[in-house]
Simulated assay, not measured.
Amino acid sequence: MPEMFVDKFRALVPKYLDRQWAETDGISYEELEELLGTYKFHVPQALVEFYHAVGGCEDLMEAHDFFWDPDELEIEDGFLLFLDEMDEEANWGIRAEHLAVPDPIVWIRTNSPAPSWQSEEATFSEFVFDMFDWVFDGDVDDDD
């Protein structure tokens, strides 16, 4: 399948970290295949390409909230979890029945007072770009 998001995800490094993207910022497809190949579920293309582009860049993977490492992904409550809020008050995931969609909608689970899921009304790629805009610029531009 042709890459759809890799260049845009790689562009996050110079945009927010004021340096050029380096090979070490990503995870090779070969390593990802080893890390993800043991799962009995499909990992969406956008998430795989995100890991390939910036999965090794701690400055982005832990910029505010914490993206799960590829070998830590799990399905819980019918959602593939991929991101934890820094105070563990929320998690983000993708509905398990939508994992074959290349760029699926992201959902947030707030953990108190009782866990509940709500749509972020954005695809994974849109969510990531908006999140980093918010983290680094304190602003989300809805026109992107």
Results as ranks from 00 to 15, higher is better:
1 M>T: 12
2 P>N: 09
3 E>M: 03
3 E>D: 14
7 D>C: 02
10 R>F: 00
13 V>G: 02
13 V>Y: 00
15 K>Y: 05
18 D>C: 00
20 Q>Y: 06
23 E>M: 07
24 T>M: 07
29 Y>C: 00
30 E>D: 14
34 E>V: 08
35 L>P: 01
36 L>V: 08
38 T>A: 11
39 Y>F: 15
40 K>Y: 08
40 K>M: 08
41 F>E: 10
44 P>E: 07
45 Q>F: 02
45 Q>G: 01
46 A>K: 10
47 L>R: 04
48 V>D: 06
49 E>L: 04
50 F>S: 03
51 Y>P: 03
53 A>L: 01
53 A>G: 02
54 V>A: 01
55 G>D: 02
58 E>Q: 13
61 M>F: 02
63 A>H: 04
63 A>T: 05
65 D>I: 04
66 F>Q: 09
69 D>F: 04
69 D>I: 05
69 D>Q: 14
73 L>T: 11
76 E>I: 09
79 F>N: 07
81 L>K: 05
82 F>C: 04
83 L>S: 01
84 D>G: 07
86 M>F: 11
89 E>Y: 10
89 E>A: 13
90 A>D: 09
93 G>A: 10
93 G>W: 01
98 H>I: 00
105 I>K: 11
108 I>G: 05
110 T>V: 14
111 N>W: 07
111 N>D: 13
113 P>W: 01
114 A>W: 06
116 S>C: 12
117 W>L: 09
119 S>D: 12
121 E>P: 00
122 A>M: 10
124 F>K: 07
125 S>A: 15
129 F>Y: 11
130 D>Q: 12
134 W>A: 14
141 D>M: 00
